[in-house]
């Protein structure tokens, strides 16, 4: 407040009109929610490391195949094929596979593209479906809520891995896009439950009623007013969903129900390596395996950091 001149009788209307009495300069710059969150995220060292690793992998996945394209039909002539692979050397730092003698580095780089693509895209589908279902159920409540949540219950009671295997076998055909859709459609349930519970509490807050009093439509209130306030936990679980999907892809491909081997993924590289492990070709499964571990760790660290950074109660 600006100090009132001594001796003058401040009339209350005057005070209001003069404006200065009820206002003061705020010297700090306005930071929005995301800027504040980034500030807190930066303090989380492991999360920063995770972010670095993930960005590196994404960059490799995008740029790598340009320099080291994977050509499925480029096969050495049959007389050149050796049974044993070759261990890492200067020329092939990740070694070479047995059989078709492919460069493991090249496989891992091309696998990164497919594996990360599957992880992120199926997460995206899962989050979109889960958020919409959860929002509608939580906002409208009643019968709508009941029906949607019973569907979620049914989905969650299925032995998912088995269902994904069967679905991949019948509909997937090794097609990347179909695999993504299958993964997405079987991973939205936890997100929808989370979103629903967030909506149930946020919709009771006064600003939602204020938004309704202004005459906004339900759609606008759901997506513009409630959802942004529910975003933080959803983002955290979405980040963890990426890790889960990458692992699931590896698992399904490893069992041979996943992506067609003409698109290398970390999972099907492992699968192909299986028969060569007894021959001591450790480099073949080791590098794609490490790639999976590092990615999943990185994503989990990021999720951890996001959890701290986006929690409105943690203020520094």
């Amino acid at each position: 407040m600006t100090p009132v001149q001594p001796g003058s009788e401040p009339d209350i209307v005057d005070l209001i009109r003069k404006e200065g009495a009820v206002d003061y300069e705020v010297g700090l710059e306005s930071l929005n929610q995301w800027q504040l969150a980034w500030r807190r995220f930066r303090k989380h060292r492991l999360a920063l490391v995770g972010l670095g690793i993930l960005i590196f992998f994404i960059a490799v996945a995008i740029v790598g195949p340009v320099f080291m394209p994977f050509e499925f039909d480029v096969i050495p002539s049959p007389d050149k094929i050796v049974y044993q692979g070759r261990p890492p050397s200067l020329q092939h730092p990740f070694g070479e596979t047995g059989g078709l003698q492919r460069d493991v580095l090249l496989l891992v780089i091309n696998g990164a593209r497919t594996s990360l693509f599957i992880g992120f895209s199926s997460m995206f589908i899962g989050v979109v479906v889960g958020t919409v279902v959860g929002s509608v159920a939580g906002y409208f409540g009643g019968l709508v809520d009941n029906v949607l949540m019973r569907i979620v219950d049914v989905m969650l009671s299925l032995p998912l891995l088995f269902v994904i295997l069967v679905a991949s076998r019948f509909f997937g055909n090794g097609n990347v896009v179909l695999i993504i859709i299958i993964f997405g459609l079987f991973s939205w349930m936890t997100i929808s439950r989370l979103t629903r519970s967030l909506f149930l509490s946020i919709r009771e807050l006064e600003f939602v009623q204020a938004a309704r009093a202004v005459g906004l439509s339900d759609r606008r209130i759901i997506f513009r007013h409630i959802l942004p306030n529910a975003m933080s936990p959803i983002i955290v679980s979405a980040s963890l969903l990426i890790a889960a999907n990458i692992i699931a892809e590896a698992f399904v491909s490893f069992l041979g129900f996943g992506v067609n081997p003409i698109y290398p993924t970390w999972g099907n590289i492992l699968s192909n390596a299986l028969t060569f492990i007894p021959l001591g070709n450790w480099w073949w499964p080791a590098f794609p395996g490490l790639a999976i571990i590092f990615t999943v760790l990185a994503v989990n660290f990021i999720g951890d950091g996001l959890r701290d950074a986006l929690d409105p109660r943690s203020k520094e």
Partner: peptide
């Protein structure tokens, strides 16, 4: 709502959406 009849609520602390200007 909002156009012909507008409403002011009791709790100014929670009546504004925290994520928008």
């Amino acid at each position: 709502r909002g156009n012909d009849i507008a409403m002011i609520f009791q709790e100014p602390m929670t009546s504004l959406n925290p994520v928008f200007t």
